[in-house]
Design a binder for these strands. Structure first.
Lengths: 306, 306
DNA sequence: TTGAAAGCGGTACCAC
DNA sequence: GTGGTACCGCTTTCAA
């Protein structure tokens, strides 16, 4: 009998309606993912990995792209109305106040590549502070004396943490306080910032950019806008290890964000929260590592021995 | 009374359950989107635009990333079980047989950046054939005599159409039949293909790559692997106008895929099908245009006057 | 205007 | 095993 039903079902091309099922099981199997600009080279890879991992454990992604300007919250409330089982916030423009609402609604939230003060959400980030410090160390060891920093969005925890690590590193190693320009994680912003930096009387000799995206642009500005050689005339470092950083034309020295471990951590945190809603929120910081390529002067280079 | 209810609702933080609503309205407001590798620089932009446009008309994206290897269909059936209102297929690895199933289930399907023989699905593509032809024309006008083509996935209609246009263009303009290597739209594949091309006795003097992604890699191989100058030693052209193509280090000449119009067309086709399920399937081919940058020799260059 | 009831497509639990 | 029923949260229709 059971078989007969099964047979008939497949003959008729019957597909159980997962939506209807979710009504009684209270599990939709959907995870809302909010992502800012996919133009940042970091996010496509993150999204791909997240989708793959989530699919592997039976979840699907309800995607939501935050508008670059202004408030993303209303749209995000829509996503909540879809009864997603969890929420991954990888966009900086989403207010963290929303995390509290989710918490109240019993939806686990994990902040990806950002943190916030709220206790309502877990977060996964790379070792932003450490990375900034490592870059400072590299600059110092190569004998640089005029460090600069191109910041991302001043409101983003990622940018602030990287800057803090860099500043502290510079201070600890006897370098001057870095000159700071804001690039806002955007292409145009980065272009303007690097241009401003290179137009100064006392041109910086080493520029740390808060993202590879901006680092690549900074290199282009140095080379094509000012005819400078990288790293002979100016060292450039980035953050993320986005794919183009390793392309031979760039060879951008950078601090890796361990995307895969970050994604794995995010997924397991979601699963953990789902299994036990009373589990405490966690803040995971995953170590990266410095990848030295060719865009920065090295200690062994003759230029560094004055 | 009405007001009192409304007030109470908002005080309690009530959110209507869109999932439950969809049960009776038979509209989930979700569109399934299958995308292959986000590593191809074309897709993040496409996804972003699609998400924005779909959100604007009240739809959300249920994302599905196709595994690179093998069969994506089982996972896609899951997506169908979520009762998506429509499906956008931007991945080549999804079988077009699935489109028929959707059709049977009354779900509109639009193929994005690909076609297939099935009559069950609409499609939106760039002018692949024309683009290939334009590149041939450019090569011919610059006096090139040894054209080559780096193909993408041989099963992909996009790659085949571009190749066909290129071949026909070469033939019509009196150039030899192009040498063809398969790059498979992958980084490694492109590297191997370009390497094979440049190792030939009779080295090609102009290489057309089926995607910008591969074109950029081809340029790197030429420059860093073989120490060649682009375009003096070899011209390279791509297809898509992906963001890095316009970066000054590359200046990759390419044929634009009009992403925004393509996305708009896809969305309006979905809306059309939703409004009238009996509406005929359409195949839209959107014109692009040649963007001449610095990676190809030009007719006015001295090298082209032998 | 307000209220009650049926039904969307499933699941879960209960008798038989 | 098999069949029946209540219920998930909403919309729609029909009565009051």
């Amino acid at each position: 009998m059971r078989e007969r039903v099964l047979r008939a079902a497949s003959e008729l091309g019957y597909r159980p309606n997962l939506i209807a099922r979710s009504l009684t099981t209270r599990r939709t199997g959907m995870v809302g993912v909010a992502v800012g600009s996919l133009a940042n080279h970091l996010y496509p890879g993150m999204l791909q990995a997240l989708a793959a991992h989530l699919q592997a454990v039976g979840y699907r992604i309800l995607l939501f792209t935050a508008p670059l300007d202004g408030n993303a919250d209303p749209e995000l409330e829509q996503v909540m109305s879809y009864q997603v089982d969890a929420l991954v916030l990888a966009a900086t423009t989403v207010s963290s106040g929303l995390a509290d609402q989710c918490r109240a609604a019993g939806i686990p939230v994990v902040l990806f590549n950002r943190t916030s003060d709220t206790t309502a959400a877990s977060s996964v980030t790379g070792a932003n502070r450490d990375g900034g410090e490592e870059i400072a160390r590299l600059f110092a060891s190569a004998g640089h004396r005029r460090p600069a920093f191109i910041a991302g969005d001043p409101n983003a925890s990622t940018s602030r943490d990287r800057e803090q690590g860099f500043r502290e590193g510079c201070a600890a190693l006897g370098m001057p306080v870095p000159i700071v320009e804001v690039g806002g994680f955007s292409d145009d912003g980065a272009r303007r910032a690097m241009t401003a930096l290179l137009q100064r009387q006392e041109r910086p000799d080493a520029v740390f950019c808060a993202s590879d995206q901006m680092g690549l642009i900074a290199m282009d500005v140095a080379r094509f806008g000012f005819g400078l050689k990288v790293p002979q005339d100016v060292s450039v470092a980035g953050f993320d290890d986005a794919p183009p950083a390793s392309w031979p034309t760039y060879g951008l020295t950078t601090y890796v964000q361990p995307i895969l471990p970050m994604v794995e951590a995010a997924v397991s945190m979601i699963l953990e929260q789902l299994a036990d809603p009373t589990a405490p929120q966690r803040r995971v910081v995953l170590p990266g590592r410095l990848i030295v390529r060719t865009s920065c002067r090295l200690p062994s280079d003759p230029e560094s021995q004055p």
